[in-house]
Amino acid sequence: MRFRILVRVMPRAGLLDPEGQAVERALVELGFREAGEARVGRAIELTIEAGSAEDAGRQAQSMCERLLANPVTEDFSLEVIAA
């Protein structure tokens, strides 16, 4: 079975996120005065061939731990969708 994996990688809460701050300032400049706490992360989508959704999830978890996210500075979340 084919599964679509959606990975979301975000800078760890509490770490300085200068990119998020810059985006927030630009939004405020643009007139969105209520905008706050912007964070910028990364989205990665891929397809996995796996026997079950659980297996696909396990593989994706391993991909995140080994490459897609940096365990020192980032947190990730995963979504597995039957393709």
Binding site: P11, L15, L16, P18, E19, A22, N70, V72, T73
Partner: peptide, 17 residues
């Protein structure tokens, strides 16, 4: 070296972008 775990920590985007 940091990414490979041979040294600890990580190098992130400069504070002032």
């Amino acid at each position: 070296l940091c990414e490979s775990g041979l040294l600890p920590g990580a190098l992130m985007r400069n504070a002032r972008l």
